[in-house]
Amino acid sequence: MTFTLGPRAISAGYQLAAFDQIGSTNAEALARARDGERGPKWFVTTEQTAGRGRRQRAWVMPRGNLASSILEVMDVSPAVAATLGFAAGLSLESALQKLAVEANMRRAEPLKFALKWPNDVLAERQKLTGILLEAEAVAGNRLAVVVGIGTNVVAAPEGTPTPATSLAALGVHVGAEELFKGLAEAWVEFRGIWDNGRGFAGIRKAWLDRAFGVGEPVAIRTGTATIEGTFDTIDETGCLIVRTAEGKRMPITAGEVYFGTAASLGAT
């Protein structure tokens, strides 16, 4: 099977560059943007050898998993571009729900997918997908935005801070190519709703409907500090709002998020 775009993505003008193997789809997309590529264009592979996650962590991507990056050049500020990650999470979650229908017929309870702030997709409380946004200014005072979406299709890394899983381990037997096609189709929908940030209110509502841990105890490590409280919501800019024991609502722009009773241990 080969990577292809569905009819919705094709009619919306998306292009596709597929690789048998590549160092990093995000790095390739940014390099193309520096060379004048304006997209919108997907860069995909089933084997990535130098992938990166948040905070420059290595993202393990053995053959058979899906590494995908979408490049779009737009007239938005970096702060607005950052909210596109929420649309990416919704796109992947939507594609997964459709692909898991057959697997759910064999299960006593349907698979539960959820979105973890700021940019993970969870399945059964384990990390299935990581999302990494990067942006650079390009000619014409525009912003090249790359959204990298890496999904564990056939295998998941071990020993990660948040336990990870794969679609195969969950009983969802699909290929990376099939998952990508569904993702690219869903992206057209949620990218359209986002509408260069003008529709973030709708994205925010849909994201919160699928969010993991709302109302639960949470600890966020931001550099050397740890903030503890209850996950209240996300605000109109995408910040995580934590309600402390004193009742103060604190906005969090970045950090490592840990939920539940293991919050103080940094184990979930």
Rank of each mutant, 00 (worst) to 15 (best):
P163R: 00
V188C: 13
L5T: 01
R32Q: 13
Y258F: 10
E189F: 10
T2M: 08
A123Q: 04
T151M: 10
A267M: 15
E109I: 02
W194E: 00
R125E: 06
V73F: 11
L122N: 00
A82K: 10
M61K: 13
L84G: 01
L240H: 00
L128Y: 04
R243D: 03
A184F: 13
K98R: 11
K41E: 08
G85M: 10
R191I: 03
A114W: 09
M250Q: 08
R32K: 07
T45Y: 14
A168P: 00
S24P: 12
L208R: 02
M61G: 15
F43R: 01
F113K: 04
A186I: 01
G247M: 05
Y258W: 13
T45M: 08
L167M: 09
I220E: 08
Y258A: 14
D20V: 09
N119H: 13
M1F: 09
R57D: 10
K181I: 01
G199T: 01
H173N: 02
H173Y: 04
V172K: 03
S69T: 03
K248M: 12
Y258C: 14
R107V: 07
F113T: 01
G199F: 13
A164H: 03
G89A: 07
G130F: 09
K181V: 04
A67W: 13
R63F: 05
R142L: 11
K181F: 10
A186E: 09
G23N: 06
R243C: 06
L96P: 03
A164W: 06
T224S: 15
I234D: 04
K116E: 02
G51W: 10
A267I: 05
W194K: 06
A95Q: 04
N104F: 10
L265M: 12
A9F: 15
R52V: 04
R63E: 12
V145H: 15
V80R: 15
G148W: 11
D120F: 08
T49R: 02
F180D: 05
S94C: 05
A123S: 05
G255W: 15
G197L: 11
S24H: 15
R34K: 09
V154H: 10
R38P: 03
T244I: 08
E136W: 08
V218N: 01
R52S: 04
L71A: 02
L167R: 09
V145C: 09
A144Q: 11
A254Q: 15
A108P: 07
W117H: 01
T261W: 14
A18L: 02
I220K: 08
F231V: 00
T160M: 12
V153L: 08
L167S: 05
